[in-house]
């Protein structure tokens, strides 16, 4: 057959990454700019101030570094990460497994779907007192709160992604005599990976909400305690610094998951898209 040159037909849009602005790649420049803008607005709002309970950005950062250096933040995270880590791992592992089985098997769907739909639709904050009746006020109760928030999103996303795997790819796998296992592992799961990972990212974020909620509502420990204690004594800079760490930590966790997804499941996303 006639040769085609490797550059023919590759219609990749001129990517934003290539052009530069102020010596920085354009994309990076805009990212930094948006972060700087948000902090600047925060600072201005704090200076006005829009509320006596709203500190400035610089004040919050001072409080943050103080809490990092005296170890309060680190100690708080050591507390918070226990239920969060265990809960997210359990939700991630069992959530994806249950979701995959629901997507592949109607009977499994029949069994699990109502449970997770109800869980997703229910106001979990209102159910937390119930958790304390059953599991007390220790680590278990907080872990259960994380699971209750994280797992429905993970399960339902995984289930939908697996159920809607591209039928043409499945047929292709069959036509080359792929076994059912190969079909699931080499076609359905990678095909569903973007949506499964979107579910995991949302699940992790929800798990974070769960653990903070539990720390605010069950017993004040960890980061939840930092927030509620500093609010109680009207030390708003410290309170906002604690909230700020939650946002940063959650963002780091979420982008870590994105890296895992691209590295192991969807390498094509690294280039061009």
């Amino acid at each position: 057959m006639a040769e085609l040159s490797p550059n023919a037909g590759t219609t990749i849009l001129p990517s934003l990454e290539e052009s530069k602005l102020f010596g920085l790649p354009k994309m990076l420049f805009f990212r930094i700019l948006s972060v700087v803008l948000v902090f600047a607005i925060w600072e201005i709002c704090g200076l006005i101030p829009i509320s006596i309970a709203f500190p400035t950005f610089t004040g919050t950062m001072r409080a943050l570094f103080e809490m990092i250096f005296d170890g309060r933040v680190i100690y708080a995270y050591a507390e918070t990460l226990k239920p969060l880590g265990v809960g997210v791992l359990i939700s991630g592992f069992f959530g994806v497994s249950i979701g995959v089985s629901m997507g592949l098997n109607r009977r499994s769907q029949w069994f699990w779907e109502p449970i997770f739909v109800v869980l997703q639709a229910s106001p979990v904050a209102a159910l937390i007192p119930l958790i304390t009746y059953a599991y007390g006020i220790g680590l278990t109760a907080k872990t259960v709160a994380v699971i209750m928030l994280a797992s429905p999103i993970i399960v339902l996303n995984t289930y939908k992604a697996v159920r809607h795997a591209n039928p043409s790819l499945i047929q292709m796998c069959k036509s080359f005599q792929g076994s059912r296992f190969q079909e699931i592992w080499m076609v359905i799961i990678p095909n569903a990976a973007p949506v499964i990972f979107a579910g995991l990212r949302l699940g992790v974020a929800a798990g974070f909400i769960g653990v903070i909620l539990a720390e605010l509502l069950i017993t004040p420990t960890g980061v939840g305690d930092l927030i509620s204690y500093n609010r109680a004594i009207a030390d708003y800079e410290y309170m906002y610094a604690a909230v700020f760490t939650v946002i940063v930590f959650s963002a780091i966790l979420v982008s870590f998951l994105e890296t895992v997804e691209v590295k192991y499941f969807r390498p094509e996303k690294k280039k061009g898209q």
Binding site: N166, S168, L169, Q171, M172, S175, P190, R266, P267
Partner: peptide
């Protein structure tokens, strides 16, 4: 062996 109308290539 089958050649598919929509190519059926693995995007990843």
């Amino acid at each position: 062996a089958f050649v598919f109308q929509d190519f059926a290539l693995l995007p990843w």
